[in-house]
Design a protein around this nucleic acid. Sequence first.
DNA 1: GAGAATCTTGACGAAATCCTGATATGGGGC
DNA 2: GCCCCATATCAGGATTTCGTCAAGATTCTC
Lengths: 229, 229
Amino acid sequence: MRYVVIEDEAAIRRFLRASLPPEEAEIFEAENGKDGLRLVAQKNPDIVLLDLGLPDIDGLEVLRRMREWSDKPVIVLSARGREQDKVAALDGGADDYLTKPFSFGELTARVRVALRRSLRTAPPTVPTLETGGLKIDFEARQVFVNGQEIRLTPLEYKVLAFLARHAGKVITHKQLLAEVWGPAYEDSTHTLRVHMGAIRQKLEPEPARPRYIRTETGVGYRFLLEEGV
Amino acid sequence: MRYVVIEDEAAIRRFLRASLPPEEAEIFEAENGKDGLRLVAQKNPDIVLLDLGLPDIDGLEVLRRMREWSDKPVIVLSARGREQDKVAALDGGADDYLTKPFSFGELTARVRVALRRSLRTAPPTVPTLETGGLKIDFEARQVFVNGQEIRLTPLEYKVLAFLARHAGKVITHKQLLAEVWGPAYEDSTHTLRVHMGAIRQKLEPEPARPRYIRTETGVGYRFLLEEGV
DNA sequence: GAGAATCTTGACGAAATCCTGATATGGGGC
DNA sequence: GCCCCATATCAGGATTTCGTCAAGATTCTC
């Protein structure tokens, strides 16, 4: 996690450095608004801690300018405790407001809240798997063969998705049945075979000689990553 | 904007009612945790104000249970001012924490912050979406088919808009019901089907062979970006 | 308070999906 | 070649899921 701290009092900066464990936190510090804005732009932090009483530009102005091009979470730390100061900062785009003196625990908890939220806003990866002519878009729940969409029933999709998520590894019948049908169906191998037949019919060019899902006789099935023979 | 207030002191509830202008705020009140949870599920509010000292369940427990199925913003209002109380609530899923007595201005400012943020969390706002002969103007809340405006009821529009904002992806019945009707209605699939029928009747040229919204049997619905078959 | 619009609920036929049994295939061991 | 086992395929019928219609209930509007 990367922090930018914009704060002119060295004591507070020291306090923050001490509060945030260095193995988790990379901290960049600025003593005035101008340097602070530059740091935010350069370092692309996950969160910004901003003092209002800065020597050059007022903290509110720093916030205003930052909000023109960034929506990184900002927590304001200020000695000003009047209601109108809080309202101005919060309406000016701050995500939270802490009045000095504040406690270490509350600060870190509020930092966690802000980080938790910004993580939720930005979904991590786009999970999509592609091998040979087969493409599986897990997010959209869609499967393509050579660019053509293939429609799968709920069970077919679940089976294929589970195999693909464990691509390269052998998945036993029991594992598949327990995962897709539920633990009570571990012995319904016949049902599984029928569904596998339907899946291959739909996505294998030659269902009799499968390229994507190999049957491991006596054990289970394996999703092939590189096109095997 | 819809508020749910979970607070046993009548004085505070009165204060909140007075603080939030009725023309902008629809307020639902509960005096204990049990009713509060039910209200959140039923009314599908934009924000929840939660007291920690409730007569039946502890506020922290209410928060914990709510977070199992909802990520609506929650602002905790509490007489407990100790650091450990704040940390527990914030780490328990609260979005903000205000110690009583709090000022009217700070409360409303923090509410605005939470609302601003949850709006931003919502899928990227595309002012208008167009595919085939269908055009959806999200800002004006208007829908056109081949240039002709289609009148949709509030629920119909919400369903269509949610699907369209996640165009291409499968939306499960539960997701759709939780989002449009509220978490308490996750199992009213039948109602959803009837509304879907009405929507298709209005905007599909051939309602029996839909071009814009495909049903994914056993899973949910999908808004089609390119015109399917 | 009447009328319209909207929403929910129930009933029933249609469609899709799923399971089961019967039968075919294919490879290894003898 | 022949048998045996695991697997694959096919076909039917059961079950689940969907769509539609229509009748009440509720809310909104005038």
